[in-house]
Design a protein around this nucleic acid. Structure first.
Lengths: 206, 206
DNA sequence: TAGATTGTTAATCGATTAACAATC
DNA sequence: TAGATTGTTAATCGATTAACAATC
Protein backbone atom coordinates (compact mmCIF):
# COMPACT_ATOMS: atom_id res chain seq x y z
CA UNK A 1 0.00 0.00 0.00
CA UNK A 2 2.94 2.29 0.65
CA UNK A 3 4.12 1.25 -2.81
CA UNK A 4 4.61 3.80 -5.49
CA UNK A 5 2.04 3.78 -8.25
CA UNK A 6 3.19 2.79 -11.72
CA UNK A 7 3.48 5.64 -14.21
CA UNK A 8 0.43 4.39 -16.08
CA UNK A 9 -1.82 4.23 -13.04
CA UNK A 10 -0.78 7.69 -11.83
CA UNK A 11 -1.43 9.14 -15.29
CA UNK A 12 -4.87 7.57 -15.51
CA UNK A 13 -5.85 8.63 -11.99
CA UNK A 14 -4.92 12.21 -12.89
CA UNK A 15 -7.19 12.03 -15.91
CA UNK A 16 -10.08 10.69 -13.84
CA UNK A 17 -9.54 13.64 -11.55
CA UNK A 18 -9.99 16.02 -14.47
CA UNK A 19 -13.23 14.35 -15.56
CA UNK A 20 -14.60 14.32 -12.02
CA UNK A 21 -13.73 17.97 -11.50
CA UNK A 22 -15.55 18.97 -14.68
CA UNK A 23 -18.52 16.67 -14.10
CA UNK A 24 -18.95 18.21 -10.67
CA UNK A 25 -18.86 21.69 -12.19
CA UNK A 26 -21.59 20.61 -14.58
CA UNK A 27 -23.77 19.80 -11.58
CA UNK A 28 -23.44 16.03 -11.50
CA UNK A 29 -23.07 14.24 -8.18
CA UNK A 30 -22.66 10.65 -9.39
CA UNK A 31 -20.80 9.08 -12.29
CA UNK A 32 -20.36 5.54 -13.67
CA UNK A 33 -17.16 3.95 -14.89
CA UNK A 34 -18.72 3.94 -18.38
CA UNK A 35 -19.19 7.71 -18.30
CA UNK A 36 -15.61 8.27 -17.19
CA UNK A 37 -14.59 5.94 -20.01
CA UNK A 38 -16.50 8.00 -22.61
CA UNK A 39 -14.51 11.09 -21.68
CA UNK A 40 -11.09 9.56 -21.15
CA UNK A 41 -11.10 6.75 -23.74
CA UNK A 42 -9.88 4.45 -20.99
CA UNK A 43 -11.74 1.14 -20.91
CA UNK A 44 -14.44 1.04 -18.20
CA UNK A 45 -13.13 -2.23 -16.78
CA UNK A 46 -9.70 -0.69 -16.48
CA UNK A 47 -11.12 2.25 -14.56
CA UNK A 48 -12.94 0.01 -12.08
CA UNK A 49 -9.80 -2.07 -11.73
CA UNK A 50 -7.62 0.99 -11.10
CA UNK A 51 -10.00 2.24 -8.43
CA UNK A 52 -10.72 -1.06 -6.74
CA UNK A 53 -7.00 -1.55 -6.10
CA UNK A 54 -7.38 1.16 -3.42
CA UNK A 55 -10.79 0.40 -1.97
CA UNK A 56 -14.45 -0.13 -2.77
CA UNK A 57 -15.39 3.40 -3.70
CA UNK A 58 -18.46 2.66 -5.82
CA UNK A 59 -21.97 1.37 -5.26
CA UNK A 60 -23.12 -1.50 -7.46
CA UNK A 61 -26.01 -0.52 -9.65
CA UNK A 62 -25.39 3.16 -8.89
CA UNK A 63 -21.86 4.27 -9.71
CA UNK A 64 -19.40 6.52 -7.89
CA UNK A 65 -20.14 9.56 -5.75
CA UNK A 66 -18.15 12.33 -7.39
CA UNK A 67 -17.17 14.21 -4.23
CA UNK A 68 -15.95 11.18 -2.36
CA UNK A 69 -14.14 9.76 -5.39
CA UNK A 70 -12.42 13.12 -5.91
CA UNK A 71 -11.04 13.10 -2.40
CA UNK A 72 -10.05 9.44 -2.59
CA UNK A 73 -8.04 10.05 -5.77
CA UNK A 74 -6.47 13.21 -4.37
CA UNK A 75 -5.46 11.22 -1.32
CA UNK A 76 -3.97 8.43 -3.45
CA UNK A 77 -2.06 10.94 -5.57
CA UNK A 78 -1.10 12.92 -2.45
CA UNK A 79 -1.96 16.14 -4.21
CA UNK A 80 -4.47 17.61 -1.82
CA UNK A 81 -2.66 20.80 -0.95
CA UNK A 82 -1.81 23.95 -2.83
CA UNK A 83 1.24 23.87 -5.05
CA UNK A 84 3.16 26.86 -6.31
CA UNK A 85 4.56 27.10 -9.82
CA UNK A 86 6.41 29.74 -11.82
CA UNK A 87 5.63 30.99 -15.30
CA UNK A 88 8.62 31.95 -17.41
CA UNK A 89 7.78 34.12 -20.41
CA UNK A 90 5.11 36.81 -20.39
CA UNK A 91 4.24 36.86 -24.08
CA UNK A 92 0.93 35.86 -25.62
CA UNK A 93 1.22 32.26 -24.51
CA UNK A 94 2.25 33.32 -21.03
CA UNK A 95 -0.75 35.63 -20.80
CA UNK A 96 -3.06 32.88 -22.00
CA UNK A 97 -1.72 30.51 -19.35
CA UNK A 98 -1.87 33.11 -16.58
CA UNK A 99 -5.48 33.95 -17.35
CA UNK A 100 -6.66 30.37 -17.67
CA UNK A 101 -8.47 28.77 -14.73
CA UNK A 102 -7.01 25.39 -15.63
CA UNK A 103 -4.28 25.37 -12.97
CA UNK A 104 -6.29 26.96 -10.17
CA UNK A 105 -9.00 24.32 -10.53
CA UNK A 106 -6.54 21.66 -9.50
CA UNK A 107 -5.02 23.50 -6.58
CA UNK A 108 -2.07 24.79 -8.56
CA UNK A 109 -1.16 28.40 -7.96
CA UNK A 110 0.90 30.43 -10.42
CA UNK A 111 2.93 32.19 -7.76
CA UNK A 112 5.34 34.14 -9.95
CA UNK A 113 5.92 35.21 -13.54
CA UNK A 114 9.24 36.11 -15.13
CA UNK A 115 10.47 37.66 -18.35
CA UNK A 116 13.81 38.81 -19.74
CA UNK A 117 12.33 41.88 -21.43
CA UNK A 118 12.92 44.97 -19.20
CA UNK A 119 9.83 46.62 -20.74
CA UNK A 120 7.64 43.84 -19.38
CA UNK A 121 9.15 43.66 -15.90
CA UNK A 122 6.89 45.40 -13.39
CA UNK A 123 3.79 45.10 -15.56
CA UNK A 124 0.98 42.77 -14.62
CA UNK A 125 -0.08 39.53 -16.20
CA UNK A 126 -3.45 38.59 -14.79
CA UNK A 127 -3.13 39.57 -11.14
CA UNK A 128 0.57 38.81 -11.08
CA UNK A 129 3.48 41.27 -11.32
CA UNK A 130 6.12 40.26 -13.86
CA UNK A 131 9.56 39.89 -12.27
CA UNK A 132 12.99 40.09 -13.78
CA UNK A 133 14.27 36.64 -14.63
CA UNK A 134 17.44 37.42 -12.67
CA UNK A 135 15.36 37.31 -9.48
CA UNK A 136 14.12 33.81 -10.27
CA UNK A 137 16.40 31.95 -7.92
CA UNK A 138 15.38 33.97 -4.86
CA UNK A 139 11.69 33.86 -5.66
CA UNK A 140 11.73 30.10 -6.20
CA UNK A 141 13.20 29.70 -2.74
CA UNK A 142 10.95 32.24 -1.02
CA UNK A 143 7.72 31.01 -2.53
CA UNK A 144 8.50 27.31 -2.44
CA UNK A 145 8.05 26.86 -6.18
CA UNK A 146 8.17 23.28 -7.32
CA UNK A 147 7.55 23.49 -11.06
CA UNK A 148 8.21 25.88 -13.93
CA UNK A 149 6.22 26.47 -17.09
CA UNK A 150 8.26 27.64 -20.07
CA UNK A 151 6.24 29.90 -22.34
CA UNK A 152 9.21 31.31 -24.21
CA UNK A 153 10.45 31.05 -27.81
CA UNK A 154 12.46 27.95 -28.67
CA UNK A 155 15.66 30.01 -28.83
CA UNK A 156 15.37 31.03 -25.17
CA UNK A 157 13.98 27.79 -23.81
CA UNK A 158 17.31 26.23 -22.80
CA UNK A 159 18.43 29.36 -20.93
CA UNK A 160 15.12 29.54 -19.10
CA UNK A 161 15.30 25.84 -18.25
CA UNK A 162 18.84 26.29 -16.94
CA UNK A 163 17.68 29.14 -14.70
CA UNK A 164 14.88 27.00 -13.28
CA UNK A 165 17.12 24.01 -12.76
CA UNK A 166 19.81 26.12 -11.08
CA UNK A 167 17.17 27.47 -8.73
CA UNK A 168 16.28 23.91 -7.72
CA UNK A 169 13.13 23.32 -9.77
CA UNK A 170 12.81 19.66 -10.75
CA UNK A 171 9.64 19.72 -12.90
CA UNK A 172 9.62 21.71 -16.15
CA UNK A 173 6.76 22.13 -18.60
CA UNK A 174 8.09 23.04 -22.01
CA UNK A 175 5.68 24.73 -24.41
CA UNK A 176 8.34 25.39 -27.01
CA UNK A 177 9.47 22.95 -29.67
CA UNK A 178 13.04 23.02 -28.34
CA UNK A 179 14.75 19.94 -26.93
CA UNK A 180 16.00 20.66 -23.42
CA UNK A 181 19.17 19.31 -21.88
CA UNK A 182 18.62 18.89 -18.15
CA UNK A 183 20.10 16.74 -15.38
CA UNK A 184 18.59 13.26 -15.11
CA UNK A 185 16.62 14.07 -11.95
CA UNK A 186 14.64 16.81 -13.70
CA UNK A 187 11.34 15.83 -15.33
CA UNK A 188 10.61 17.63 -18.60
CA UNK A 189 7.11 17.54 -20.03
CA UNK A 190 6.96 18.84 -23.56
CA UNK A 191 3.64 19.85 -25.02
CA UNK A 192 3.63 19.48 -28.75
CA UNK A 193 0.20 19.57 -30.36
CA UNK A 194 1.71 19.08 -33.81
CA UNK A 195 3.19 15.75 -32.81
CA UNK A 196 -0.11 14.68 -31.30
CA UNK A 197 -1.85 15.76 -34.46
CA UNK A 198 0.42 13.64 -36.64
CA UNK A 199 -0.41 10.74 -34.40
CA UNK A 200 -4.16 11.43 -34.61
CA UNK A 201 -3.88 11.81 -38.37
CA UNK A 202 -2.37 8.39 -38.77
CA UNK A 203 -5.50 6.78 -37.38
CA UNK A 204 -7.66 9.15 -39.37
CA UNK A 205 -5.98 8.25 -42.66
CA UNK A 206 -5.79 4.48 -42.21
CA UNK B 1 3.07 -4.68 -43.39
CA UNK B 2 -0.23 -3.20 -44.50
CA UNK B 3 -1.26 -3.59 -40.86
CA UNK B 4 -2.22 -0.63 -38.80
CA UNK B 5 0.26 0.42 -36.16
CA UNK B 6 -0.78 0.07 -32.54
CA UNK B 7 -1.61 3.30 -30.75
CA UNK B 8 1.57 3.06 -28.70
CA UNK B 9 3.88 2.62 -31.67
CA UNK B 10 2.28 5.48 -33.59
CA UNK B 11 2.57 7.76 -30.56
CA UNK B 12 6.23 6.89 -30.06
CA UNK B 13 7.11 7.30 -33.74
CA UNK B 14 5.54 10.78 -33.65
CA UNK B 15 7.74 11.68 -30.73
CA UNK B 16 10.87 10.42 -32.48
CA UNK B 17 9.86 12.67 -35.38
CA UNK B 18 9.83 15.67 -33.06
CA UNK B 19 13.29 14.87 -31.69
CA UNK B 20 14.73 14.29 -35.17
CA UNK B 21 13.24 17.54 -36.48
CA UNK B 22 14.80 19.51 -33.64
CA UNK B 23 18.11 17.69 -33.73
CA UNK B 24 18.34 18.49 -37.43
CA UNK B 25 17.61 22.15 -36.72
CA UNK B 26 20.44 22.10 -34.21
CA UNK B 27 22.78 21.05 -36.99
CA UNK B 28 23.12 17.35 -36.21
CA UNK B 29 23.13 14.83 -39.02
CA UNK B 30 23.35 11.59 -37.04
CA UNK B 31 21.74 10.40 -33.84
CA UNK B 32 21.90 7.24 -31.69
CA UNK B 33 18.99 5.43 -30.08
CA UNK B 34 20.46 6.47 -26.71
CA UNK B 35 20.28 10.14 -27.63
CA UNK B 36 16.67 9.82 -28.77
CA UNK B 37 16.02 8.03 -25.49
CA UNK B 38 17.48 10.91 -23.46
CA UNK B 39 15.01 13.34 -25.02
CA UNK B 40 11.90 11.15 -25.13
CA UNK B 41 12.34 9.04 -22.00
CA UNK B 42 11.60 6.02 -24.14
CA UNK B 43 14.01 3.14 -23.49
CA UNK B 44 16.75 2.92 -26.16
CA UNK B 45 16.06 -0.77 -26.82
CA UNK B 46 12.41 0.04 -27.36
CA UNK B 47 13.36 2.69 -29.92
CA UNK B 48 15.59 0.30 -31.87
CA UNK B 49 12.87 -2.33 -31.70
CA UNK B 50 10.19 0.09 -32.94
CA UNK B 51 12.37 1.12 -35.87
CA UNK B 52 13.70 -2.30 -36.80
CA UNK B 53 10.14 -3.56 -37.25
CA UNK B 54 10.08 -1.51 -40.46
CA UNK B 55 13.60 -1.97 -41.77
CA UNK B 56 17.26 -1.66 -40.95
CA UNK B 57 17.57 2.09 -40.84
CA UNK B 58 20.67 2.40 -38.67
CA UNK B 59 24.37 1.67 -39.00
CA UNK B 60 25.95 -0.39 -36.25
CA UNK B 61 28.59 1.54 -34.37
CA UNK B 62 27.35 4.79 -35.92
CA UNK B 63 23.67 5.41 -35.31
CA UNK B 64 20.89 6.72 -37.53
CA UNK B 65 21.13 9.29 -40.31
CA UNK B 66 18.65 11.96 -39.28
CA UNK B 67 17.44 12.88 -42.77
CA UNK B 68 16.80 9.36 -43.89
CA UNK B 69 15.20 8.35 -40.59
CA UNK B 70 12.92 11.39 -40.81
CA UNK B 71 11.63 10.35 -44.18
CA UNK B 72 11.27 6.71 -43.18
CA UNK B 73 9.13 7.64 -40.17
CA UNK B 74 7.07 10.08 -42.21
CA UNK B 75 6.48 7.31 -44.72
CA UNK B 76 5.45 4.87 -41.98
CA UNK B 77 3.09 7.41 -40.44
CA UNK B 78 1.85 8.43 -43.92
CA UNK B 79 2.10 12.07 -42.94
CA UNK B 80 4.35 13.36 -45.66
CA UNK B 81 2.02 15.92 -47.20
CA UNK B 82 0.61 19.22 -46.06
CA UNK B 83 -2.43 19.10 -43.82
CA UNK B 84 -4.87 21.92 -43.22
CA UNK B 85 -6.34 22.68 -39.82
CA UNK B 86 -8.66 25.35 -38.43
CA UNK B 87 -8.18 27.46 -35.35
CA UNK B 88 -11.34 28.34 -33.44
CA UNK B 89 -10.94 31.25 -31.02
CA UNK B 90 -8.79 34.28 -31.70
CA UNK B 91 -8.00 35.32 -28.12
CA UNK B 92 -4.59 35.26 -26.47
CA UNK B 93 -4.24 31.52 -26.74
CA UNK B 94 -5.38 31.57 -30.37
CA UNK B 95 -2.82 34.25 -31.15
CA UNK B 96 -0.08 32.29 -29.43
CA UNK B 97 -0.94 29.20 -31.46
CA UNK B 98 -1.19 31.10 -34.74
CA UNK B 99 2.20 32.71 -34.24
CA UNK B 100 3.97 29.55 -33.17
CA UNK B 101 6.11 27.66 -35.69
CA UNK B 102 5.23 24.37 -34.02
CA UNK B 103 2.61 23.27 -36.53
CA UNK B 104 4.35 24.52 -39.66
CA UNK B 105 7.48 22.55 -38.77
CA UNK B 106 5.55 19.34 -39.14
CA UNK B 107 3.77 20.20 -42.38
CA UNK B 108 0.61 21.35 -40.68
CA UNK B 109 -0.91 24.54 -42.04
CA UNK B 110 -3.33 26.67 -40.07
CA UNK B 111 -5.59 27.41 -43.02
CA UNK B 112 -8.35 29.35 -41.27
CA UNK B 113 -9.17 31.06 -38.00
CA UNK B 114 -12.61 31.72 -36.58
CA UNK B 115 -14.16 33.72 -33.77
CA UNK B 116 -17.66 34.54 -32.58
CA UNK B 117 -16.79 38.12 -31.67
CA UNK B 118 -17.86 40.47 -34.52
CA UNK B 119 -15.14 42.93 -33.46
CA UNK B 120 -12.48 40.36 -34.19
CA UNK B 121 -13.87 39.15 -37.52
CA UNK B 122 -11.89 40.64 -40.39
CA UNK B 123 -8.82 41.38 -38.28
CA UNK B 124 -5.64 39.43 -38.71
CA UNK B 125 -4.06 36.85 -36.49
CA UNK B 126 -0.55 36.20 -37.70
CA UNK B 127 -0.96 36.30 -41.48
CA UNK B 128 -4.50 34.91 -41.31
CA UNK B 129 -7.77 36.82 -41.56
CA UNK B 130 -10.24 35.95 -38.80
CA UNK B 131 -13.53 34.64 -40.19
CA UNK B 132 -16.98 34.58 -38.69
CA UNK B 133 -17.64 31.24 -37.08
CA UNK B 134 -20.87 30.97 -39.11
CA UNK B 135 -18.77 30.52 -42.23
CA UNK B 136 -16.94 27.56 -40.68
CA UNK B 137 -18.81 24.85 -42.53
CA UNK B 138 -18.11 26.27 -45.99
CA UNK B 139 -14.47 27.00 -45.24
CA UNK B 140 -13.86 23.51 -43.88
CA UNK B 141 -15.16 22.08 -47.14
CA UNK B 142 -13.37 24.53 -49.43
CA UNK B 143 -9.99 24.26 -47.74
CA UNK B 144 -10.13 20.55 -46.98
CA UNK B 145 -9.66 21.04 -43.25
CA UNK B 146 -9.20 17.83 -41.31
CA UNK B 147 -8.69 18.97 -37.74
CA UNK B 148 -9.81 21.80 -35.49
CA UNK B 149 -8.01 23.42 -32.58
CA UNK B 150 -10.28 24.87 -29.88
CA UNK B 151 -8.72 27.90 -28.22
CA UNK B 152 -11.94 29.16 -26.65
CA UNK B 153 -13.18 29.48 -23.05
CA UNK B 154 -14.62 26.35 -21.48
CA UNK B 155 -18.14 27.79 -21.70
CA UNK B 156 -17.95 28.02 -25.51
CA UNK B 157 -16.01 24.84 -26.15
CA UNK B 158 -18.98 22.54 -26.70
CA UNK B 159 -20.60 24.93 -29.21
CA UNK B 160 -17.35 25.27 -31.09
CA UNK B 161 -16.86 21.50 -31.09
CA UNK B 162 -20.40 21.03 -32.41
CA UNK B 163 -19.72 23.45 -35.25
CA UNK B 164 -16.55 21.58 -36.22
CA UNK B 165 -18.23 18.18 -36.00
CA UNK B 166 -21.23 19.37 -38.05
CA UNK B 167 -18.82 20.60 -40.70
CA UNK B 168 -17.29 17.12 -40.92
CA UNK B 169 -14.13 17.56 -38.85
CA UNK B 170 -13.19 14.34 -37.08
CA UNK B 171 -10.12 15.43 -35.06
CA UNK B 172 -10.52 18.07 -32.35
CA UNK B 173 -7.83 19.51 -30.11
CA UNK B 174 -9.36 20.91 -26.97
CA UNK B 175 -7.32 23.48 -25.04
CA UNK B 176 -10.11 24.24 -22.60
CA UNK B 177 -10.81 22.30 -19.44
CA UNK B 178 -14.33 21.44 -20.67
CA UNK B 179 -15.44 17.88 -21.33
CA UNK B 180 -16.73 17.58 -24.88
CA UNK B 181 -19.60 15.39 -26.01
CA UNK B 182 -18.92 14.25 -29.56
CA UNK B 183 -19.94 11.31 -31.75
CA UNK B 184 -17.83 8.17 -31.27
CA UNK B 185 -16.01 8.58 -34.59
CA UNK B 186 -14.56 11.95 -33.52
CA UNK B 187 -11.16 11.95 -31.79
CA UNK B 188 -10.84 14.53 -29.02
CA UNK B 189 -7.39 15.37 -27.66
CA UNK B 190 -7.54 17.43 -24.52
CA UNK B 191 -4.47 19.28 -23.41
CA UNK B 192 -4.48 19.79 -19.69
CA UNK B 193 -1.14 20.82 -18.22
CA UNK B 194 -2.61 20.88 -14.70
CA UNK B 195 -3.47 17.20 -14.91
CA UNK B 196 -0.01 16.41 -16.21
CA UNK B 197 1.46 18.46 -13.40
CA UNK B 198 -0.45 16.52 -10.74
CA UNK B 199 0.91 13.38 -12.31
CA UNK B 200 4.47 14.74 -12.31
CA UNK B 201 4.06 15.92 -8.73
CA UNK B 202 3.17 12.45 -7.54
CA UNK B 203 6.55 11.16 -8.59
CA UNK B 204 8.23 14.26 -7.22
CA UNK B 205 6.65 13.83 -3.78
CA UNK B 206 7.13 10.10 -3.35
C1' DT C 1 -38.31 -7.38 -7.79
C1' DA C 2 -35.81 -5.87 -12.04
C1' DG C 3 -32.27 -3.27 -13.87
C1' DA C 4 -27.91 -1.39 -13.52
C1' DT C 5 -23.29 -1.24 -12.36
C1' DT C 6 -19.52 -2.56 -9.44
C1' DG C 7 -15.65 -5.62 -8.13
C1' DT C 8 -12.93 -9.47 -9.61
C1' DT C 9 -11.17 -13.32 -12.21
C1' DA C 10 -8.82 -15.27 -16.04
C1' DA C 11 -6.88 -14.98 -20.43
C1' DT C 12 -4.42 -12.39 -23.91
C1' DC C 13 -1.66 -8.98 -25.74
C1' DG C 14 1.69 -5.35 -26.05
C1' DA C 15 5.52 -2.88 -23.62
C1' DT C 16 9.67 -3.07 -21.39
C1' DT C 17 14.16 -4.54 -20.37
C1' DA C 18 18.70 -7.01 -20.18
C1' DA C 19 21.83 -9.23 -22.72
C1' DC C 20 24.67 -9.99 -26.55
C1' DA C 21 26.10 -11.28 -31.19
C1' DA C 22 26.67 -8.82 -35.46
C1' DT C 23 28.95 -5.34 -37.74
C1' DC C 24 30.00 -0.55 -38.93
C1' DT D 1 41.93 -3.29 -34.92
C1' DA D 2 39.10 -1.34 -31.05
C1' DG D 3 35.14 0.93 -29.75
C1' DA D 4 30.54 1.90 -30.44
C1' DT D 5 25.98 0.97 -31.54
C1' DT D 6 22.57 -1.58 -34.01
C1' DG D 7 19.32 -5.52 -34.53
C1' DT D 8 17.30 -9.35 -32.17
C1' DT D 9 16.20 -12.75 -28.73
C1' DA D 10 14.14 -14.18 -24.54
C1' DA D 11 12.07 -13.26 -20.30
C1' DT D 12 9.14 -10.43 -17.44
C1' DC D 13 5.81 -7.23 -16.35
C1' DG D 14 1.85 -4.29 -16.79
C1' DA D 15 -2.30 -3.12 -19.65
C1' DT D 16 -6.31 -4.53 -21.69
C1' DT D 17 -10.45 -6.96 -22.26
C1' DA D 18 -14.47 -10.18 -21.81
C1' DA D 19 -17.22 -12.29 -18.76
C1' DC D 20 -19.95 -12.63 -14.81
C1' DA D 21 -21.23 -13.08 -9.97
C1' DA D 22 -22.30 -9.86 -6.35
C1' DT D 23 -25.23 -6.42 -4.82
C1' DC D 24 -27.12 -1.75 -4.67
Amino acid sequence: MGDRLTVGVAARLSRYLQVLTQAKKMGKSRISSQEISDYTNVNATQIRRDLSAFGKFGKRGVGYDIDSLLSEIRRILRTQGQHNIALVGAGRLGEAIASSPIFAEHGINIAAAFDVDPDKVGRRIGSLAISDIRSLSGVVRDKNIIAGVLAVPAASAQDAADALVDAGVRIVFNYSEALLDVPPDVQVHTSNPAVELLHALYFHLT
